[in-house]
């Protein structure tokens, strides 16, 4: 890399574009291809296999005492993919998708609300010192309160069973997004703002052209964390309040002693949660093309 740039540099007059042409390749593709080349996917398969076979052997072959009430691998999977499930929940029942859909809808609402409020708030907190002096201490006081501590208040404050769950899901996401956005603004080298001002940008333009794009990488780190904690809070919320949803499935299955459904709910949560994280990452890659190229070039 270093060599090719030196050459391009001395041939100043009409240097051809470098051969490392990656303009059409997105960061996602780049990550995937790198990932496939690394030993990681294969280690991952081994990891999965190890856990599943341990589960199988512990419950169904060795019948370890600690696992005696635990549903076995074959039981769970045959229930999950059964056309006529014994406990009424499998990939063939509409109810399964209703639970997923309702959880997703709550996540969607809460995540969009947290992003829509958290990103602007974080940008202004990072940008205006005065605004920060007013708001940040308050913010820091509320932030360490765990979501579970908000449960009673959420139920008292909001009517119905839907809004408390969305509110709880929103909370932690909102704090994560706001904080990371603020850190993103602080991370921007002051020389960019100075350069913009020197080139004639006013304060508002500097905000739009330097602060927002400069904070973008941190914002998306924040959104990654946000979507993760959103699922965490959602399940907590659905366990205490609300009807339907994956958290609700897990909790009621426990009370009804329908243990395989617990595991089905958990695995589904893992898959759906992972998919939403991946979607946030894709969106980030799409919005930060400049980083796509930066990272891709840095690594090659």
């Amino acid at each position: 890399m270093a060599n090719s740039s030196e050459v391009a540099d001395s041939a100043v007059s009409m240097a051809a574009p470098q051969s490392t042409e990656i303009s059409s390749m997105s960061l996602t593709m780049y990550r995937v291809s790198n990932w496939l080349k690394s030993p990681r996917p294969y280690l991952m398969v081994i990891g999965f296999a190890a856990v599943l076979s341990f589960w199988y052997f512990a419950v169904e072959v060795w019948k370890l005492p600690r696992f005696q009430d635990m549903p076995g691998l074959t039981e769970v999977f045959s229930e999950w993919f059964s056309k006529d499930p014994y406990y009424g929940l499998s990939v063939y029942t509409p109810e399964y998708y209703k639970h997923i859909g309702i959880s997703l809808r709550r996540i969607g609402f809460a995540f969009l609300l947290a992003t829509g409020l958290g990103v602007p708030l974080g940008l202004f907190l990072g940008w205006s010192k005065t605004f920060r002096e007013y708001v940040f201490p308050l913010f820091e006081l509320f932030r360490p309160i765990p979501v579970l501590a908000w449960v009673p208040l959420a139920i008292i404050m909001f009517v119905g069973s839907e809004t408390p769950v969305v509110f709880l899901t929103f909370l932690a996401s909102f704090f994560a997004t706001t904080l990371n956005t603020m850190l993103g603004v602080e991370s921007i080298d002051e020389s960019y703002s100075r350069a913009a001002r020197c080139l004639g940008a006013n304060r508002w333009q500097t905000f739009k052209h330097v602060v927002v794009p400069g904070a973008m990488p941190y914002i998306f780190t924040g959104l990654q964390i946000s979507i993760g904690v959103a699922w965490f809070s959602l399940v907590a919320g659905e366990m205490v309040s609300g009807q339907f949803g994956l958290g609700y499935v897990i909790n009621t299955s426990y009370m009804m002693i329908e243990y395989p459904k617990i595991i089905i709910g958990m695995i589904t949560l893992g898959i759906v949660g992972y998919s939403t994280s991946a979607m946030v990452r894709l969106l980030g890659d799409y919005l930060m093309q400049w980083r796509v190229r930066e990272l891709a070039l840095g690594d090659s």
């Binding site: 080298d189 100075r194 350069a195 020197c198 080139l199 004639g200 794009p213 400069g214 930060m288």
Partner: peptide, 27 residues
């Protein structure tokens, strides 16, 4: 006065052309 600071750098989120056109566009 237009200053090219010692640590001044191009905006990483803009292409070469957009960087060059930044001043005129901002004004």
């Amino acid at each position: 006065r237009l200053v090219l600071f010692q640590e001044s750098a191009l905006f990483p989120w803009m292409t070469t052309y957009d960087n060059i056109m930044y001043g005129p566009r901002a004004r």
